[in-house]
Computed example of a mutant assay.
Amino acid sequence: MTVALAVQVAAFGLSVLFALLRLPGALRGQNRGVFVSMVLIALTMGLSLGGIYTVVDGWLGGRNLANLVLRLSLYAVFVILGVKAAAAFGAGWARKLIIGPIGLAVLALAVGLTVYFFVLSDLPVTSVGLQAYEKQVTVQSYASLGRMYPGYVAACLCAPVLMAAANSRLRVLHRTGAGLLGAGLVLVVAFSFLQEVVYLGVFTALVPFTAVILVTVGLTVMWVSHLRQRRRPSQNLLAESYRNVS
């Protein structure tokens, strides 16, 4: 097993684990949005693995519709987590950039063009990551869009999340979770830009999946911190504002 594949498998395993940990709370009606996002992360991570992708795409007709499902699921993840994180970290301006008029226009354009370029591409046989078709201009445009929208949302959130990580008034676990989440978001932004201008080689897989691991671990650390705070309330009420991503 290569390092890149090991990171992919780790990202998938952790996302499934953290989704399962959230399931009891979701069944009780607690923060179902984050649970849904965790399930969607697990779905996208699963579809990045050859064995799962091949089986699922076979069910969908063997014409790489599974890749379109992966892309659109990833967009949904960033919309949900973007809105939740913006509210939790008190970044109203970031929320507007994600689901305000500008944000919705960006999302509609990303979804519309993603579907458009997918339909224009000639994808007759299942190919994990569309690697067999990477020389098609439409596939290249499709792949670029798949990186740009997550990069846009991540860029909106980097500043407030990293500021929280540096805020000494917050609980250590909250700051740790925010730091991990922020690091993951920075990697998403960096990857969306660098992949367009340089050849990343093995880092093409390592960077995005490492980002997923950081984001999911960060969210889980903040969730654990929130659970501890509920059992033993802290006198630092500022930390309570992070319950929306906890």
Rank of each mutant, 00 (worst) to 15 (best):
L185W: 03
A239Q: 14
G218H: 09
T114W: 02
A178Q: 03
L162I: 15
W93K: 15
M222T: 13
E240M: 11
L130H: 09
G182A: 08
L130R: 05
V39M: 12
L237P: 02
T216V: 15
F118Q: 03
F118D: 02
L21Q: 01
S241R: 15
L157T: 03
A11P: 06
Q235L: 12
L65H: 13
V83G: 03
G184A: 10
A76K: 03
I52Y: 13
A4V: 15
A164M: 05
L70E: 11
A178M: 02
A86G: 05
A211G: 07
S168M: 13
V77G: 11
F118I: 08
A154F: 02
L214M: 03
R22D: 11
R95S: 03
L74D: 06
S141V: 11
K84I: 01
Y133S: 04
Q8I: 09
L5M: 13
S127G: 11
V69Q: 13
I213L: 15
Y152P: 00
V83T: 10
V125N: 09
Y242V: 06
I41A: 04
Q30D: 14
A4Q: 12
N67P: 03
A76L: 14
T126C: 01
R230I: 14
T126I: 05
V217Q: 00
F203P: 01
L219K: 06
N244A: 14
M1C: 09
G50C: 06
K135T: 15
N31I: 05
A205H: 09
R71G: 02
K135H: 11
D122F: 12
A165C: 12
V69N: 11
N167T: 10
P208T: 04
K135A: 13
V77Q: 09
G218M: 08
R231L: 15
G62C: 11
L40E: 09
R231C: 10
S127F: 13
A66S: 12
F117P: 00
L237Q: 12
S246W: 04
S192W: 10
L40M: 11
M45P: 01
L65F: 15
V119S: 09
R171Y: 06
V128K: 07
Y53I: 04
L74H: 07
F191P: 00
G33C: 07
W223K: 12
W223R: 15
G61H: 08
G112D: 05
A164L: 10
A94H: 06
G50M: 08
S141Q: 14
P124M: 10
A42V: 03
G92C: 01
F89V: 13
A183E: 05
V217E: 00
R22W: 12
I41C: 00
P24F: 07
A205W: 10
L187E: 04
A6P: 02
A66M: 10
M1V: 13
